[in-house]
Design a protein around this nucleic acid. Structure first.
Lengths: 215, 215
DNA sequence: ATTATGACCGACTGATCGGTCATAATAAAA
DNA sequence: TTTTATTATGACCGATCAGTCGGTCATAAT
């Protein structure tokens, strides 16, 4: 049945995907390599043909996750021209991320943070991963802002603060997402997101513009 | 009828405090009961004279932590009359919390979140603790807003949205605090906080504008 | 048919952990 | 001093885990 040569890259990815599910459900510490193997439908020993340590599995799973996230974000934005609508789209994606079906994302990002911050965490020596991810998203938002300026929607004075505003926005969405999950959606995340976003847009847009309504 | 006198309550607290340090440094899973005992300067068995399980130690440590937090917040606010200044004080306390000396708080709150969200987490069945804490802070902020309305500083129409706005503010500060820690303070937290806060205040205070969110 | 090799596996190992328990220490009471 | 109830302890236990290893299997090359 088994071919002599296997697509190792593909299989590595499969294992990482299986691990991703477990890590997001149970966290890193409570997920055993045996369970990962079982979920992936292979023997435990085989795991170690593809990964040196459990920590390596975690890192691969994380990369899998961030890749999907990036891809999704880009897809969400690619067809939109208007910078304000782009900001709305980002808000919407953050809202989607709280979907129970997707709550894995939140738990993963908690694990990600924790492993980066704890002195004995898997990622303590690799915090650049965290920064990389933030920096990527930050630049994306900053570019939207700059685009908005060049299109006359946002005030030119904010150009040098674009990055700061981007950080502000991303930080807000991270926070509200966490609150939404921990509160089990007792508040209206959409309403919250738009309250923030509209306050923000109002403070950066050129006088005379009107609010956009969005789905 | 009292052969040996020990202040059990005090000792329980001592153990919880020792545990608090370790949990915030290494996380729950990586902290062993033996280490807690050692840190507290007692034998491992003694721990179990005061706590039934490791999870109970964690919960006690958490309570210790939230108590301090509450006390600190109240002290920060008690001498301030002006609601806008009170909001500023809350911002300032959030800034203080990122102090490296205090980064334990961030890690503790991550662990708190995670143990509440993971299905096998210690607090999964006790998520009301998380909600309690949020609700307490939320009410505190909402009260400031209502006070501001009664003092003619904020628009009366926001009264019924006070809680929502409070959530918005707390979510923002949680988010920006996390970002600040993970980014190792590469951005100016104070600037960020005030950018948010000023946008918010501008949108709720009486002078001038109307404008409620579309959507 | 024989051999070589990549892929796969699960029993095993050494170590750690949470929690228990028999015993010792302590200090008030008799 | 002796008694007695309480408090303290660390050796100990069963469970679990990450990682290893000897060996099997299926295919490809000869």
């Amino acid at each position: 049945m088994s071919p002599k040569f296997v697509d190792r890259e593909r299989k590595t990815k499969e294992i990482a995907q299986a691990a991703l599910i477990l890590f997001s459900q149970k966290g890193y510490a409570a997920t055993s390599v045996g369970q990962i193997a079982k979920t992936a439908g292979i023997g435990k020993g085989t795991i170690y043909e593809y990964f040196k340590t459990k920590a390596d599995i975690f890192i691969a799973a994380l990369r899998e996750w961030t890749d999907r996230f990036e891809k999704r974000l880009r897809k969400h934005l690619e067809d939109i021209e208007n910078p304000i609508q782009k900001l709305h789209a980002i808000a919407e994606m953050n809202i989607e991320l709280v979907d129970p079906l997707d709550s894995a994302t939140a738990q993963l990002s908690l694990e990600f943070l924790q492993q980066s911050l704890l002195e004995n965490g898997i990622l303590f020596k690799r915090r650049y991963l965290l920064k990389q991810m933030h920096a990527g998203q930050c630049r994306m938002v900053a570019d939207i802002l700059l685009d908005g300026i060049s299109k006359g929607l946002f005030r030119p004075e904010i150009a040098r603060d674009a990055e700061k505003i981007a950080i502000n926005l991303l930080a807000y969405f991270d926070g509200v997402r966490l609150h939404s999950i921990t509160s089990e959606n007792y508040f209206d995340l959409k309403e919250q997101a738009y309250f923030y976003l509209n306050n923000l847009i109002r403070s950066i847009q050129t006088s005379g513009s009107q609010l956009q309504t969005s789905n």
